[in-house]
Design a protein around this nucleic acid. Structure first.
Lengths: 437, 437
DNA sequence: ATGTTGGCTAGAAGCCGACAA
DNA sequence: TTGTCGGCTTCTAGCCAACAT
């Protein structure tokens, strides 16, 4: 337990969490949304929030908190990642000590350099008992120790550690006609131990010390939804609200679990991100926006839509809440799965002056993407289309956002930039460019 | 899900739950103890109840409730059994409508006839990949369809359904020198699917329609304690209390899960059992008592002890609570694991007039029981010692208890007997006598 | 560049009675 | 009566290149 906390590599955790997941910095201030937390519980228990559940009139729809601690975890059975956060409501909903805020250490930079990693969605052959694992060539050359190609065949033993720090041994060999990189001995043990199936994703990563790390990200197929059997879903939802209400009333610390794969949306938002969205973004019905979402093949892509309404998600229980206060429609007809309500900080309104092309241009038919046959590797960020409609996350995106910040900022928001460090996401494999090869 | 609820056989569920577990009748009145519920949650999360958790001053230490419903379940991953109970606090803590109470239907009788079943604790040979499962001879003859012994060898295909209604096929053969019953083909699939280990118990049962049922009861070894990752233990404990407090305040229904293998003690007690213990049992410091407990080999045995104190377990939070209000000492030095505090309704005080032998006689050295070598079968109730010190559960025990009831009862308690139907436990294998063979 | 398949083989799974407790 | 073991057989896991996409 202690060992797990010490050793759980944040970059590995983030890779397993998915391309869009970010974590606020320890010591920073965040906005906690009980509604979003309830949604995570409801999604995990497959239970709608029961109207029977008592309201907590003294619990606001959002709590500004200091984030005292984050510990990263993975479930023992499934390797599903989750984060434990210790929050403390800031008294009166206001920041007491401005000095505290600006004193947030800026340790984010050191994790920003590109992580050497790759991920691959497993094929039927990869998961069958008939053989081993076929490694994409450039991926193998990037993250595995170099083979001695003078041997026949070139081969080596690999040792990789998973999220629980367990060791896994693999035989890495370069053979076949034509030649290819394979993991043979040891691979099937791993597949059966983790109960991997075709469609799940494995990822390998090399840390600072050269050590090989190994994680999994399961396909978004139906989770078995381990019916908790410990507490009824009603009691859990009540527990979420009562714990938050108690913490708010006493300004005491409380603990929550954020499960990025189970949660429909992040519900602990960096205060700076929240403030920027709330105070520096004008939205109105009819306005168009972009929003980055995870695709089926574990990469990201931007979808476009139109704001169709603004108003409370739950006017009775949570009046004036900014949680999912925007009703939206999506451009594409394949939007079945997408949320019909989003929060202001999730979207990028299309209104910045640097956007030169006319919105109608963005409505042109999209180039069909091959959804099969090229979904095995998402590590290289090679695909890119013009105008940001279909592209991988990249440094360029972040630069774009920053430019927006500066243009929209007044002196006070510029000051906030110093401690904000939202999106403190190390630039992992999916942001690696070809120059890494 | 629905199917599981329909088909989960109550007798099978009880066998998997263990020999001492009982369920109150649907429609009856019960006493619910938030403290006991918290203990179950704390035991499952391996977290002591945090003193930080807010008190609920308006929540009494016990709620008299009507038990509206029970559904029986088993965890998908582990087959661990649990029961979902819907409770409704009775207004004012008093029974409103006496007619309701006495109208409790008495459907308990029909489940009382002996269930045809056997259980066996698995040996190393049973769980190894080297071979199959050795069935105790009389067990096989009792619950399996008879073999055609004219064939060479006598063999048949068996079909059994587990708690999830999954089918398992086994080849049942009678061979070897000397002859014995074995399950061969299909057995190892079952063992690995259920992840059974030596020491775990399997049980086979024949239901009314002749269908074969199959359950497991894992050894009391360290549970992996699936750190829920959904809700912090604090929030869960708060949820337990807040849900109960809300239900008590509004007299509305609430839902709890009772997990007999995880819970240190039952915390939903039939009202009649509670009343009998509270109003018809005099206890005092120094008094001696007996208490039935589950042994390591999944049978039951009575232990003896002395009451060493009477008082609140948690005087601050739960003053005047009857939950674990008795401090006890155990006669045997092997009492390391046993609770140092028990509740009044868990014990049998040794003061009844029919107990003729002097208490000092009961302190004589106990005959050592073979704890190894005879722990494979607990289905036959063959072992028995005089004076009820070491014996299996049997019809005789229950008759004994009933006799005590009648002797201690005044007219009003005798009236209570009509609707009480506590311990509505079908008499399953462990109460089966030799006459069943 | 890499997914799938047939061929082959080594080793585990699994059936049997012997033997012993 | 039944747990464990050695002997033997069967079958699956798993390595390889061929071939296809």
């Amino acid at each position: 337990m202690e060992g797990e906390r010490r050793n759980l590599n944040p970059a590995l955790w983030l890779e397993c969490a998915g391309p869009l997941v970010t974590l606020p910095s320890i010591g920073s201030h965040v906005v906690y949304f009980p509604q979003g937390h309830s949604e995570q519980v409801a999604a995990s228990t497959q239970k709608e929030a029961d109207p029977q559940i008592p309201g907590y009139p003294n619990l606001p729809s959002q709590l500004i908190c200091k984030l005292h601690n984050i510990t990263l975890h993975a479930e023992q059975e499934t390797d599903e990642v989750y984060a434990q956060m210790t929050l403390q409501p800031v008294t009166g909903g206001l920041l007491q000590n401005e000095k505290d805020i600006f004193a947030t250490p800026d340790s984010g930079n050191q994790t920003k350099r590109p992580t050497i990693a790759f991920s691959k969605t497993l094929t039927a052959s990869d998961t069958s008992t008939h053989g081993g694992f076929s490694i994409p060539r450039r991926a193998a050359e990037k993250v595995f120790p170099p083979l001695d190609y003078t041997k026949t065949p070139p081969a080596q033993e690999l040792l990789a550690r998973d999220l629980h720090n367990n060791e896994w041994h693999f035989r890495h060999i370069y053979r076949g006609q034509p030649r290819r990189h394979l993991l043979t001995t040891g691979w099937s043990v791993f597949v059966s131990a983790k109960r991997l199936q075709a469609g799940d994703t494995v990822l390998f990563m090399r840390d600072e010390t050269g050590q090989l790390l190994l994680g999994i990200r399961r396909a978004n197929r139906q989770q078995p939804v381990t019916q908790s059997s410990l507490l009824s879903s009603d009691s859990m939802l009540i527990g979420v609200l009562a714990a938050a209400a108690h913490a708010a009333a006493t300004s005491s610390r409380f603990t929550i679990f954020y499960n990025p794969r189970a949660s429909p949306s992040e519900f602990v938002i960096p205060l700076a991100k929240y403030n920027k969205a709330m105070f520096h973004t004008q939205v109105s019905v009819g306005m168009r926006f972009r929003m980055e979402l995870e695709t089926e093949d574990s990469s990201t892509r931007r979808y476009m839509g139109t704001i169709t309404g603004i108003g409370d998600l739950d006017p009775v229980r949570w009046p004036k809440s900014s949680w999912r206060s925007l009703k939206v429609g999506w451009d594409e007809s394949t939007a079945g799965q997408r949320q019909r309500r989003v929060s202001l900080w999730e979207i990028e309104p299309i209104s910045a002056p640097f956007l030169v092309c006319h919105p109608s241009l963005l409505l042109r038919p999209k180039r069909a993407r091959p959804s099969q046959g090229s979904n095995q590797t998402d590590a290289f960020g090679e695909e890119e289309e013009v105008e940001g409609i279909v592209k991988k996350t990249s440094m360029w995106d972040r630069g774009d956002n920053n430019r927006l910040d500066v243009q929209n900022s007044n002196p006070s928001t510029f000051g906030l930039e110093h401690w904000m460090r939202v999106e403190q996401r190390p630039d992992v494999s999916s942001t690696t460019t070809e120059s890494d090869y």
